[in-house]
């Protein structure tokens, strides 16, 4: 059976590979929610392809807006697919660390309480 180290390493490598492949092969079509927005705005037929210049009209009045550091999983046009790979790799590792860190932290808090029982 795989030990923990191998399991974690294999898992992260597979995740990074999926993310790397995604940069090159991901579909550029809008996702389900965006497609639905285009359909209800009359820019796209339900089962038809998405027109070239289709753009979702957003009513931003009274709504919050936020500029993320790596919008659309890229580091900007100039960085191209390298930027995309870096962005997804950063996200993948960060998701791993945040979940591991919080889960581990919660376990630490719990320890003294358990010993008292």
């Amino acid at each position: 059976m795989m030990d923990n180290k191998t399991f974690i390493l294999a898992g992260i490598v597979i995740a990074l590979l999926i993310g790397g492949v995604a940069v090159f092969f991901a579909s550029g079509d809008p996702d389900g929610l965006e497609s639905t927005a285009l359909v209800v705005q009359g820019q796209k037929e339900l089962t038809g392809s998405t027109p070239e210049g289709a753009e979702i009209h957003e009513d931003l009045t009274g709504k919050f807006s936020y500029e993320s550091p790596m919008p659309d999983y890229s580091l900007g046009e100039s960085m191209g697919s390298t930027g995309g790979i870096v962005a997804i790799a950063v996200g993948t590792i960060l998701a791993f660390l945040v979940v591991l860190g919080l889960a581990y932290g919660l376990k630490l808090i719990n320890k003294p309480a358990k010993q008292n029982q």
Partner: peptide, 25 residues
């Protein structure tokens, strides 16, 4: 380890937009 690896895997999978026909991914 499983919980953390799942997080990494789910993040990566979510970044992969697959074509589902009808102009949608």
């Amino acid at each position: 380890p499983l919980v953390a690896v799942l997080a990494a895997g789910i993040f990566a999978l979510q970044s992969f937009n697959l074509p589902v026909s009808m102009g949608t991914s």
